[in-house]
Nucleic acid binder design. Structure first.
Lengths: 213, 213
DNA sequence: GCTCGACTACACTGCACAGTGTAGTATGGC
DNA sequence: GCCATACTACACTGTGCAGTGTAGTCGAGC
């Protein structure tokens, strides 16, 4: 064991070189296209036109590389407006707004690819999958808060804001997300996506909305 | 190449012995618990208290073994009543009936485990995932037909039966299926499941139902 | 001109796993 | 007794892949 070789088992590079970006880009493409298990470090190195050693010089291992990519994509996608209940605005408009944001987020091509990969990777350890794809958790929280506020304000007649939020999301996801993810269906056009949200909000308000308000 | 050894490259056993069942049982448990990639043929053999050779004597390979198991579980689960539109019965009751069947099917523990594994395995090739889990496709067809009939009968006011069916399913799945599958949530109690279906049908009819009928 | 950090090329270890080949054992029917 | 069937034990091939070790190249700054 020649342990005195250089500096021991620490990462050998730290700077943010152009090669690092090449690796990240190549790895993103490979992971999103072929999944975690279906992508080898050799392929990534080859695609990045970089030696395998360089990959390991910038990232400690496959998992770390994948995590870095997932984090980066999620950060890019999670850059969305907050949705806070506004008593003076019509409820329908507010529900449409958050619904559209939700639908846009989950139909984003990169989010879908990432979902595919993360779900394939972590579905055996479900907690991690939900944890990693927290982008839409944040929106779900906003939605629950909005529904709770609308209820308190007497404009919605519902028991559980959590359940109602799930229903609203389910209405949208079953049209705009799951068919594309698990059945290879083409992504919804903007037009169709917006129609799906309008329909979902229509169903929602016909049931939970209070007549006069 | 000693090709004259026994009989060439054909499967060596054909009978339905008790060992075959042991292999199937063990493989079912292993696959459902650890997924396709997470299960090795050695583990299956060990769990079945059988030599590895015996596994290969009954099944040509890992894929075939998995397919046999998936088919068997799906056959068991797909054994469900047909739901055909009955003009004389109240629509609500009919929607509740098919909704409850749907919810029962997808909340079945074995169906969920199988879904997990199949989704993890085939989500990169989405067509296969939908194809394998056809159990709920059959119900979806029934549901679409039922909605189309209800529309023709003037009891439902909707454009697309396909879209409406998706919405009804989405309302149920987002409460009773996906949280359990991807977030490790406890399965819904029978009581909660039935409440979810009633709520979904309520939302559905408040929007799509025709007032008088 | 030398050094140092980033990088390459490539050989190599170690592992897990699918699938095979084969010699040998136990059992029941003839 | 004999033979076939079902099965075991186990060694073995081949492959794909994560991760490492190392000698050497190249360019920038001193």
């Amino acid at each position: 064991m020649p342990t005195e070789s250089t500096t021991g088992p620490a990462p050998r590079r730290r700077g943010h070189s152009p090669k690092r970006k090449a690796v990240l880009d190549a790895a993103t493409a490979e992971f999103l296209a072929h999944g975690f298990a279906g992508t080898s470090m050799d392929r990534i190195a080859e695609a990045a036109r970089v030696s395998k050693r360089t990959v390991y010089d910038h990232f400690p291992g496959k998992d770390a590389l994948f995590q870095a990519i997932a984090d980066e994509i999620l950060a890019r996608i999670s850059d969305m407006p907050e949705h806070v209940y506004a008593p003076e605005r019509p409820l329908e408009a507010q529900l449409l707004a958050i619904g559209h944001t939700f639908a846009e987020t989950i139909t984003d091509a990169e989010f879908m690819d990432l979902s595919r990969v993360v779900i394939a990777r972590f579905i055996q350890r479900p907690s991690m999958a939900e944890n990693t794809l927290k982008a839409h958790r944040r929106l779900r929280r906003d939605m629950i808060a909005l529904l709770a506020a609308g209820k308190k304000d007497g404009r919605l007649s519902l028991r559980s804001p959590e359940m109602a939020a799930a229903q609203l999301c389910g209405l949208i996801k079953e049209l705009a997300f799951w068919p594309q993810l698990t059945a290879g269906q083409e992504p919804l056009s903007t037009r169709a996506r917006r129609a799906a949200v309008r329909s979902a909000v229509g169903l929602f308000l016909d049931h939970y909305g209070v007549r006069d308000a």
